[in-house]
Computed example of a mutant assay.
Amino acid sequence: MASEEINCFYPVEIQKYLSAFKNPLGAVAKILKTKISVPRNELLQKLDPLEQAKVNLVSIYILNLMFCVYLAIPGVNPMGHPVKQELERMRVYVNRVKEITDKKKAGKLDKSATSRFVKKNALWEPKPKNAANVANKRKS
């Protein structure tokens, strides 16, 4: 019945686009219902600080994007609105979190093992010039 209502109000050309939009929208609604069913405090308590920051950033970013859509519906240009500055600010924070995540994933250097390797195996050190003279004097 809902599809019949859509057919009455919208041109046939956009019917497949509306149908394609309906499926992901239903999936988002399902995910939101499961997320909303768990209190936010309980959800955040189970996460480490970096994961908490990610959840908060995603929440704020999505809220701002939804506000952009809300502005665009009546024809207001969201790029001329202060919400654009807020989205840029959120991008900066997302990049900071990404840097932190990348640093955690990066390999760590074992300084003691490196120094042992370099001292014992890798570097050749020339003998001092006077050491060669001392060795020659001992032979004679």
Rank of each mutant, 00 (worst) to 15 (best):
P24L: 04
L25N: 09
G26C: 02
G26F: 00
A27N: 06
A29W: 07
K30C: 01
K30A: 12
K30R: 06
L32Y: 05
L32E: 09
I36L: 14
V38C: 04
N41Q: 11
N41T: 10
N41L: 05
E42F: 01
E42S: 04
L43E: 10
Q45R: 09
D48Y: 02
P49K: 01
Q52L: 00
A53R: 13
K54W: 10
N56P: 00
V58Y: 08
V58R: 07
I60H: 05
I60Y: 04
I60F: 03
I62L: 15
I62K: 09
L63M: 11
N64E: 09
F67S: 07
F67M: 12
V69Y: 10
V69H: 09
L71A: 01
I73M: 10
V76Y: 04
N77A: 03
M79I: 05
P82F: 10
V83A: 09
K84P: 00
E86R: 10
L87H: 06
E88C: 09
E88M: 11
E88V: 14
R89Y: 06
R89Q: 09
R91V: 03
R91K: 12
R96M: 14
K98I: 06
K98E: 12
D102T: 15
D102I: 15
K104G: 08
L109R: 15
S112N: 13
R116H: 11
A122Q: 04
L123H: 03
E125K: 06
P126K: 08
K127S: 08
P128V: 01
K129N: 02
A131C: 01
